[in-house]
Design a protein around this nucleic acid. Structure first.
Length: 820
RNA sequence: GCCCGCCUGGCGGAAUGGUAGACGCAGCGGACUUAAAAUCCGCAGCCGGUAACGGCGUGGGGGUUCAAGUCCCCCGGUGGGCACCA
């Protein structure tokens, strides 16, 4: 995933792009044509904050950050294709985004609609749900209001079924991410039905339910405070209006929701029941009913829904059980304050009686359809994607509002709609709105004075198609179909788990939308996904409670720490995510300057499996650095010994080293294929140990040749992970005649050398290890069993016992089952 | 509340159902050095034993199997996702 240009790279970037670079270099060596691009997710709020706080223009701030971070990434030795680089804030990029949006608009995939949003009255902008913390704006600290605004929406819900179903085809995605997306999309089966208002009420109230089997247990109907009917009631009932205002001021993430306090207001209206002739029920406005889900109205069945139960008990509404748990007696079954949500048999329910829950759902839906008051429907939790932001530093939404023509798309030949440079940030709100001239344009249709849309796109739009743009980064159309067909989908996408839903789901939607508007042929953007863990570090606190940077402290051998300058004791805190506030960050630039990029890459790969959180430790880095020095010494040691031709036969030490070398080739290859980089590292340590052993062995013909082979393979196998050192060692060996290790095909192990000269067989008696025997590979079972039985310690265990079964797994194990 | 991971030495972790703890970090002992650093060699799960060896051991309990860290069931702990979603 491409980075946001915040200023400096952090360890998360180092981990992310090291992983990707290992894959790119390895795949290249395997003969694949690899595209490994880099770009910048360059629009966003921090640039505007910098403008407000420091008076620097967002563009200047952003481009300076990009230049700095590009240099840092280049120092890491990433094999990136910089020819394809772009930043999403460049008009050359965002003009194509505007074109895609207009095509989506034409195709009916864009809607402008009123919606309830989080509104920060101080900053004067809409906030995303993530930007609302405890009901307050994350920057201003002002209580967030719910406000109805006209916003642009991308119709992601139209793709809900496909986005859900296609998850099954993403077999190289982590199961956990697919589950999270499935939950987010949230398919549910139920019924939609209309309750008629009694007493001259016009029309009815639509309700969605997953429990039509419990309709006979109804005791009230509840609508969301934002429901149109609630508004109508409030217009003539001041108390209702006050109640609604109170609900709105509480916000969505207020404590009342967490504690589950249910609040309601009886409107005085009543609805009739679709199945029970003559019955009627009160209509309440309730704070726990969400306008955004279903129809914004529910029927309350307290017996079998806990929220309805809480509400009914609080306001003294009827509770009628209609599902009888297995084994319960219908004559005596009652409910306390806990709703019964388990399986059972329907009772108290007219024509549904004696059916089980599932059968009753089907029967109820069938009856609703026959009566023409409802039907079975599938409902989705996923909502359309609101992309309007009242922000300057984003891609302008390319439409014009005209008093007579309405919303008019900006004609293609007038794209891009460029952001003006001359803006000021002295007032809160959107600078585009305050700009004296920018928004005033003639209507492209009628020519009369009109105004531009001043909202810009959510930055998630920018990142929803950049990967496809890499295929033809300079084309004058958004996407060149042939290029996209050739490269896409992305074979290996790597990023943090925090993107599991938003970015990855938006991109999946966008890719489908681009297909349906004829831009590309693929429908899934990422065939393989890998989610890396975070990079954590210990945190430190001085005696005065202030957080201390790692370089300010000194670790003692007993695990305690003191302040480097004052010698005062330091509290060693938890290992947690690196953050500026805890001061437990490590600057990759400093690490690279001190130890080199290879050490940083090697340590980050060696510490643990890459999908888990890792701990950055000073001793771990030192260990990685030591190993780079050791490899160099192993190569250097060959400078002073004469070269040898490959002999026809090797001695004992030479054979042992060659087997170690070729087993290492096979093992590292397998480890890299399965993203087990920490295991690949361990195998290379083993090879280094084997080379050291060979250095110490008595000289024999061919041993130097075997050492050269081992060191060369060491360099080539380590090359994807430590590219600089690998080239240095490879050049020093003089093997390549000026070619780079990176240009060589991936080494192949010689099959003969993978087989051991003898194998150690574990010998068990009743599943307990009693000894081992050395036998030739693939030795006959009777020979192995005889040797096993003769092994002294095994013989002792077998003494006086009768062997009832002899298990022999070739080249692995023998197990004697005994009796008596 | 619902859904999903994870649990192995002091630490990170390894282990196609087949010798649990590879490899590294930290630690201990030794060599080299006047000394230190660096480097090299060696030890190292726990308990008992000089040792040979024996017993125990992958969160706890049960099961399948000749054989379980690995497969199945129950429980516990822990981390994460979603959450008045009707």
């Amino acid at each position: 995933m491409f980075p946001y240009p915040s200023g400096k790279i952090h360890m998360g970037h180092v981990r992310n792009y090291t992983l990707g670079d290992v894959v790119a270099r390895y795949k290249r060596a395997r003969g694949h044509s690899v595209m490994h691009p880099m770009g910048w997710d360059a629009f966003g709020l921090p640039a505007e904050n910098a403008a407000r706080e420091r008076g620097v223009h967002p563009a200047k701030w952003t481009y300076e950050n990009i230049a700095n971070m590009r240099a840092e990434l280049q120092r890491m030795g990433l094999s990136l294709e910089w020819e394809r680089e772009f930043a999403t804030c460049q008009p050359e990029y965002y003009r194509h985004q505007q074109k895609l949006f207009l095509d989506f608009l034409k195709a009916g995939l864009v809607e402008r609609k009123e919606s309830w949003v989080n509104w920060d009255p101080v900053d004067g902008t809409v906030l995303a749900n993530e930007q609302v913390i405890d009901g307050k704006g994350w920057r201003s600290g002002a209580p967030v209001e719910k406000k109805q605004l006209s916003q642009w929406f991308l119709s992601i819900t139209k793709y809900a079924p496909q986005l859900l179903d296609a998850l099954d085809t993403l077999d190289r995605w982590p199961e956990r991410v697919r589950l999270m997306q499935a939950n987010w999309i949230g398919r549910s089966e139920g019924a939609r039905l209309t309750f008629r208002l009694t007493g001259g009420g016009d029309g009815g109230l639509d309700v969605y339910t997953t429990r039509p089997d419990t309709l006979f247990g109804m005791s009230f109907l509840a609508i969301a405070p934002e429901h149109p009917l609630a508004g109508a009631v409030a217009a003539r009932d001041p108390k209702a209006a006050a109640f609604i205002a109170d609900c709105k001021s509480r916000g969505t993430s207020e404590a009342t929701i967490e504690t589950g306090e249910k609040l309601g207001y009886d409107t005085g209206l009543r609805v009739s029941h679709p199945f029970i002739e003559g019955a009627s029920y009160p209509v309440w406005i309730a704070n726990f009913v969400l306008m955004e889900y279903g129809t914004g109205a529910i029927f309350g069945c307290p017996g079998h829904d806990q929220r309805d139960m809480d509400f009914a008990r609080k306001y003294g509404l009827n509770v009628t059980p209609v599902v009888l748990p297995p084994g319960a007696d219908p004559a005596t079954f009652t409910l306390g304050d806990d709703a019964y949500v388990g399986p059972g048999t329907i009772f108290n329910s007219g024509f549904l009686n004696s059916l089980d829950v599932d059968a009753a759902k089907r029967a109820a839906i069938q009856r609703l359809e026959e009566q023409g008051v409802g039907k079975g429907v599938t409902n989705w939790r996923l909502r359309d994607w609101g992309v309007s932001r009242q922000r300057y530093w984003g891609c302008p939404i390319p439409v014009i509002h005209c008093a007579s023509c309405g919303v008019v798309p900006v004609p293609d030949d007038q794209l891009p709609v460029r952001l003006p440079d001359d803006v000021t940030f002295d007032k809160p709100g959107n600078p585009l709105d305050h700009h004296p001239t920018w928004k005033h344009v003639p209507c492209p249709r009628c020519g009369q004075a009109a105004t531009r849309e001043t909202d810009t796109f959510d930055t998630f739009v920018d990142s929803s198609w950049y990967f496809a743009r890499y295929c033809s980064p300079t084309a004058d159309v958004p996407l060149v179909k042939e290029a996209v067909d050739h490269w896409m989908p992305v074979d290996q996408y790597i990023g943090g788990i925090e993107h599991a839903i938003l970015h990855l789901l938006y991109s999946r939607f966008f890719t489908r939308a681009m297909k349906d508007t004829g831009h590309i042929a693929v429908e899934e953007p990422f065939a393989g996904l890998f989610t890396q863990g975070m990079v954590n570090h210990e945190s430190y606190r001085g005696a005065d409670g202030r957080w201390l940077y790692p370089e300010e402290i000194e670790k003692r051998s007993d695990g305690t720490a003191v302040h480097r300058e004052t010698n005062e004791p330091v509290t060693v805190g938890r290992v947690e995510a690196m953050s500026k506030s805890k001061r437990n960050t490590i600057d990759p630039g400093a690490i690279i300057a001190r130890f080199g990029a290879d050490t940083a890459r090697w340590f980050i790969l060696s510490d643990n499996p890459p999908d888990r959180d890792m701990e950055w430790t000073e001793s771990g880095v030192a260990g990685a650095y030591r190993f780079t020095q050791r490899i160099f010494r192993l190569a250097e040691a060959l400078d002073t010994v004469p070269q040898e031709a490959k002999p026809a036969a090797f001695g004992t030490a030479g054979r042992a080293l060659r087997r170690a070398t070729h087993r290492c080739i096979a093992a590292v290859t397998e480890a890299l294929e399965s993203f087990a980089f920490n295991v690949a590292v361990a195998r290379l340590y083993e090879l280094a140990n084997a080379i050291t052993e060979a250095e110490r062995a008595a000289p024999e013909p061919g041993l130097v040749w075997a050492r050269r082979e081992a060191v060369e393979m060491m360099a080539r196998l380590a090359a994807p992970m430590m590219p600089h050192l690998a080239e240095d060692v490879y050049a020093r060996l003089g093997a390549g005649d000026g070619t780079l290790a990176a240009e060589l095909p991936w080494p192949e192990a010689e099959p003969d050398l993978l087989a051991a000269e003898s194998v150690t067989i574990a010998v068990q008696v009743m599943g307990k290890l009693r000894g081992t025997v050395e036998v030739p590979p693939d030795a006959a079972a009777d020979l192995v069993l005889a040797a096993a039985e003769a092994e002294p310690n095994v013989a002792k265990a077998l003494e006086g016992k009768r062997i009832v079964k002899r298990v022999h797994v070739p080249n692995r194990i023998v197990n004697f089952v005994i009796a008596g």
